[in-house]
Design a binder for these strands. Structure first.
Lengths: 217, 217
DNA sequence: CATGCTTCGAGTGTATACATAAAAACGGGC
DNA sequence: GCCCGTTTTTATGTATACACTCGAAGCATG
């Protein structure tokens, strides 16, 4: 694996996991020394992060980790809604729609599970599997690429809101609805279920996010 | 302006204008010699082109200009439709919707113009103005960013289909419909008009594109 | 004491040299 | 004559040295 890829993965993970908080300056020399590589791979990685929107290039000061404004959340979810809804529609119309019954059952089991918070990691894996399956079934590479870029930001936002068992179970039920709608080859229903899920998700994040009062230095 | 930006703009323009046809290998040393800069800015520019999807990195052979498959056209326009429709919806709901009456009149005049093919360049500028106005009125930076990436590909596709006066006039009428719908603050109508326009545009491109039979070397 | 200029420094932007890996070409063996 | 291994070449990947710009701090002056 190339060193620049390693640097990119490392920085991207650290930004998503809030080890690098918004506003942190990512100096080339500093990062190159910390990660044990030259400036060149670091430069490449930083450029990719800027392209992803995870960092912004500031004139003279280098690149800094981008802010995650609560005021931008609505915009983010508007874009996510149109993309995920179309993705779900296409998946429900695809030949592989029937294969989603198995996934739907898995979500049903997850929703009924008692020890939901303990299995949060496994649950997120299941969500990732559903997303991936929808992408494959929809078969639109442009849509998948746009969503891939978007989901990085969402992983980052997710860390803002603490997960509670109730929300996780509700999320499992909503995902089950989406999977069942696709399995039944009903595009409109799949899109509607997706809209419902994203609305609930956004509402939860907005309610359970500690108000990040802007620091006035 | 930085050298890497200049290289990026140059290569991007040449790709969009089909001076660099799909499959062309963009070797770092070759381009650095041609453009009179070092390899470092060229590398950065190539990385940005790959991120844009205008080029793909091939293992060992460097990066090559990406193909524009007619089979991918439908996928591209699906994504474009959902993004542009939502954008038009948001613009029609915005406070600046009324300002689109002026643009709509400009499109009406363009549609009525006799010497349409001669004014093609000016007409495309007008289209760009409408796109920009919709972006601003919609006020969703994530949506705008996604569309900005997409429109580059569309400029490239547009060169495939030769413009004829009839199509340009029809396009002007369709754009006028969109602008009027926004000016009348009717989101559903704006989205519908956008869908109609994109459908016609895709149909035209598919019909008037010379069948690019794959070359077997 | 405030404001403006100057100078210093830290950081990026660029060029180039070196390492490395993959692809093509060449030669030897079958 | 064909195929496989080796070599050579050519490309990218990485490291580092140098130049230049922007910011900040410090000093001088009004």
């Amino acid at each position: 694996m190339r060193a620049s890829d390693k640097v990119y993965d490392t920085l991207r993970t650290e930004i998503v996991e809030w080890q690098l908080v918004p506003g942190t300056v990512l100096a080339e020399v500093e990062q190159s020394e910390r990660l044990g590589v030259s400036r060149t791979p670091v430069r490449e990685a930083l450029a990719r992060l800027v392209a992803d929107g995870l960092a912004v290039a500031q004139r003279g000061r280098g690149v800094v980790v981008s802010e995650v404004g609560k005021d931008h959340l609505e915009d983010l979810f508007v874009l996510r809604r149109v993309l995920e809804c179309e993705n779900a529609r296409l998946a429900a119309d695809s030949a592989h729609a029937g294969e989603f019954a198995e996934l739907a059952q898995a979500f049903d089991r997850a929703a009924a599970q008692e020890s939901m918070p303990d299995a949060a990691s496994g649950y997120y894996q299941l969500v990732a599997r559903l997303d991936e399956s929808i992408d494959q079934a929809a078969g639109n590479s442009y849509l998948s690429a746009a969503l891939r870029n978007l989901r990085v930001h969402l992983q980052r936002v997710r860390r803002l809101a603490q997960d509670n068992p109730q929300r996780l179970r509700a999320s499992a039920r909503e995902h089950a609805s989406i999977a069942w709608a696709i399995a039944q080859k009903n595009p409109d229903l799949a899109a509607a279920a997706t809209t419902v899920h994203l609305h609930q998700s956004l509402t939860h994040i907005k309610n359970y996010t500690p108000t990040t009062e802007r620091q006035h230095p």
